[in-house]
Design a protein around this nucleic acid. Sequence first.
DNA 1: GTGAAAGCGCTAACAC
DNA 2: GTGTTAGCGCTTTCAC
Lengths: 340, 340
Amino acid sequence: MFQAATIKHIAQALSVSPSTVSRALRDSHEVSIDTKKLVLEYAKKINYRSNPNAQSLKSRRSNAIGVLVADVANSFFSQAINGIESVAYDKGYHVIITQSHDRYDREVINMEHLANRSVDGLLISMSSQTTDYNHVTNLHQKGLPMVFFDRIIDEVDTFKVTTDNVQSAFEATSLLLEKGFRQIGFLGNAPQLSITIDRLKGYGDALKRYGLDPHPGLVSYCYEGGRNYDEVKMAITALFSSEPPIDALLIGSDQISTEAVRVLTTFDNPRKVTIIGFSNSEVIDLWSPRISYIRQNAVEMGKIAAQKLIALIESKYPVHEFETTLVSSELHFLNENIKE
Amino acid sequence: MFQAATIKHIAQALSVSPSTVSRALRDSHEVSIDTKKLVLEYAKKINYRSNPNAQSLKSRRSNAIGVLVADVANSFFSQAINGIESVAYDKGYHVIITQSHDRYDREVINMEHLANRSVDGLLISMSSQTTDYNHVTNLHQKGLPMVFFDRIIDEVDTFKVTTDNVQSAFEATSLLLEKGFRQIGFLGNAPQLSITIDRLKGYGDALKRYGLDPHPGLVSYCYEGGRNYDEVKMAITALFSSEPPIDALLIGSDQISTEAVRVLTTFDNPRKVTIIGFSNSEVIDLWSPRISYIRQNAVEMGKIAAQKLIALIESKYPVHEFETTLVSSELHFLNENIKE
DNA sequence: GTGAAAGCGCTAACAC
DNA sequence: GTGTTAGCGCTTTCAC
């Protein structure tokens, strides 16, 4: 089946050596123009494609990068993947996507799977259920290039790309305060995630700036990333039992924003709450009730992360200087309240 | 960087030959229990992982399957990918995802890229802008296993998996007729796509069964797959200019359903139209206006397609008997009209 | 400017 | 039961 043309075939047909063909194909300067032309033409004619496995074996590189995300069905991630793909594609890399579904065990297995020299580097966004980072640090110590995006961790010293989460949450909370809201709740993803920590910090900073004390009863988490309705419902129920009742809510994740709106539309105890949620939904403009939202520049994050990773992979010398790139987000505020 | 352990290292450390190690690792019966145990233990200790590139080069297989879809951000496809992944994963295959963004040129390039022995087989859903199938038939003739799903084509004889589109559209249209609607429009994806042809057929069949003639003025297409608002707006405008005006609309694609609702919410000329759209949106329950919808079993389609492909790849003998699997869909009808 | 030969890591005849 | 050898397709010294 599928007998692909090889360098040997070309060499034989043209009565030259395989090495000459190889050189011609790679446009080496030490091969005559004529031979080069001959080889290139024939290669094109028989539709020759070099065997990437052989190349990888030789070069010890695969020209593929692995991506670890929670879920491709999540708008934020699918947009980030678009960004990653566009860059990778231009630079001649394949993209291998794996999903953790926010589970620690899947994350570990996928990472092992990818790492085992079938990829040249990894683009990682941590699962919300991961609290132990040995699988990551081990691979990093072994020299596998990796770049973190969105859900980054401190445990590994490398390039990181994320939204300016502190600032974004600060601005959103400040806006709510400006509009007169005072009992502002925070509903976050798993508490150890960078996005939760940073967004909570921005939220707290804004409150403090208004002389308010971030009240623990106003903060709630979704440990499973808001993947199921019940988890989000419980978290929201907890928030709604605050006294005095919350009048506004900042939601710190895409998935949770969606699920929260779903919960609120069917809530038993009707209450008026203004929501700002992080969300990259492509159809958030069609939602009812509509909510205000913070939209991250997912495509740009994906692009930057891929660029950093490829730079790392192709760097001739070990890189020791790393920076964390903060990508700005957009706050879309709707001047209406939500009533459920 | 990243010096992985090889069979040679193990052989040296244990003073046996590489072939013995290889055999032990593959649990060959022609190696003694003791040696096997020794090798396996040491391999585990040094965290040995076989080099897939070397294996691929040798076996001429990559243990990877390529997926070609229009867009991972499309709910239908991301769900199908979940199905594909779960099966592939269980059977030890990597999944390499590429997106055509519904463009012919991207489809051709991606396919070439993947085909070039870096994957063992292809799962394909055609781009809406593709009308020439040479790139596909060429690869198929060369023996590359492929399975089509969702947007299938007649030009290649292989396994295909798709929703029972004729039946789904027939049922949806019949329901509209039953409810008393008579001026039912059809808004489809590109006209050459299998999903458009089949859904249009189901639509027409239902009309005929009610003694109605499918009127050409009631049918409109989105040649670019509904990827931009203007395209959908134009198609809808065309439909709305029918005389007498349409009172219901069947929409034949996920993307177009979304964009159509967006168009209708901002339409100048208010008109009452009941919509049933194919849609796998995870948040369609949050939309306003809400529409009735047909939800395909995308996960199941992905699973079946992956199973068929892997069976094809691993088949010892050439397969000549192919079937097209039809997966059923769910019709969710809302008893309310849409007014924009 | 071109060719011969070795080797990337692994597997599979073919010895013994 | 184990070792030797050759080779998958490609690149890259090292000769000439």
